[in-house]
């Protein structure tokens, strides 16, 4: 697009540059601000006197001898045992991603290759299930889970998250498998493979881009979940997000709020890294549904 006719007038260039900068500030500034502020004390981060205090940190310097302090992190991770929540989150997200991808690839492949009418109904049911507010489902789980005595344990939560994740995984992998030519597995079957062997030998080697993308979104769902984990887990088994919420109950005491700030930043940083490495896949995943639908 370097032809002469498309040359922009300078005013338009200035306007669009200004708009992009404004949007960047709106999108990123809150996170950078909070990250910076998480190394201050409460009197600086929430400064009555001057908002500049949150940047320079005079009170922090008076208390700790340097404008930065890890006190919030120490309080959150050590004193409030945030590390336990981090471990739980790691366990939950890893299991959810692995299990839901295993179930999802099998189901998505079947939906993409079967031409019968019930695939339509299954996909529509999945769409309705996808729209269910999670808390309505949780209100259905609680009483049976209490009765069966499986409430509060990590495996229960993992299975529930896998199930909640299935509609989305099925849709995404279904449309991904549609884009893999049918000839590939049919040729394998002509050569004498069973359907499952064809799937294993011909499809699995070429499906990884779609699986990685879907896996990212499964990860995000499990990592970001608050509704299910906060209602189905005991205090000791809590994952990061419910744990952060429980910090908020005790905000009155001086310093406690900084524990929550530090915990929030600890929860954001892995997402930063994730976007850094997988930006392309995330973008293609977001649009995968759109291209088809």
């Amino acid at each position: 697009m370097s032809n002469l006719a498309d040359k922009k007038p300078p005013s338009l260039v200035a306007l669009s540059t200004g708009f992009v900068l404004l949007w960047l500030v709106i999108a990123a500034f809150p996170f950078l601000w909070t990250m910076w502020g998480s190394f201050k004390v409460e009197a600086d981060f929430f400064s009555r006197a001057d908002w500049m205090n949150a940047i320079t940190g005079p009170v922090t310097e008076r208390q700790y001898g340097s404008p930065f302090t890890g006190a919030g992190y120490e309080g959150a991770w050590v004193e409030q045992e945030f590390w336990r929540a981090v471990l739980n989150t790691a366990l939950v997200t890893f299991s959810v991603v692995v299990i839901s991808l295993t179930l999802g690839t099998l189901g998505g492949y079947a939906l993409a290759r079967s031409g019968f009418k019930y695939t339509f109904w299954l996909l529509m049911a999945a769409l309705v299930f996808r729209a269910m507010p999670h808390v309505t489902l949780v209100s259905g789980y609680l009483l049976p889970f209490f009765q069966l005595n499986i409430w509060g344990y990590l495996p229960t939560t993992i299975i529930v998250l896998v199930a909640i994740n299935q509609p989305f995984t099925l849709w995404m992998l279904h449309s991904f498998f549609l884009s893999i030519p049918k000839d590939l597995d049919e040729a394998a079957m002509v050569d004498g493979c069973t359907r499952f062997q064809a799937f294993r030998l011909a499809i699995i080697p070429v499906m990884w881009p779609g699986v990685v993308t879907t896996g990212l979104f499964s990860f995000l769902l499990a990592y970001n979940d608050f509704t299910v984990t906060s209602m189905l887990l005991t205090q000791e088994n809590a994952t990061m997000i419910p744990k952060i919420n429980s910090f908020l109950g005790s905000t009155q005491e001086e310093g406690k709020v900084m524990y929550a700030v530090a915990a929030v930043v600890s929860a954001i940083v892995p997402l930063f890294v994730l976007i850094l490495f997988f930006q392309r896949q995330i973008v293609s995943g977001l649009t995968a549904g759109a291209v088809k639908g």
Binding site: L103, L122, A125, F129, T136, L137, L143, P167, T169, F199
Partner: peptide, 25 residues
């Protein structure tokens, strides 16, 4: 039959933890 063989785990998860809870509700 093959279709069911591929999709039953995912279907079971959705029936148990999405459809049944709605009935339970």
């Amino acid at each position: 039959k093959t279709f069911m063989a591929f999709i039953w785990p995912s279907l079971l998860a959705m029936v148990l933890f999405i459809a049944l809870p709605i009935i339970s509700v």
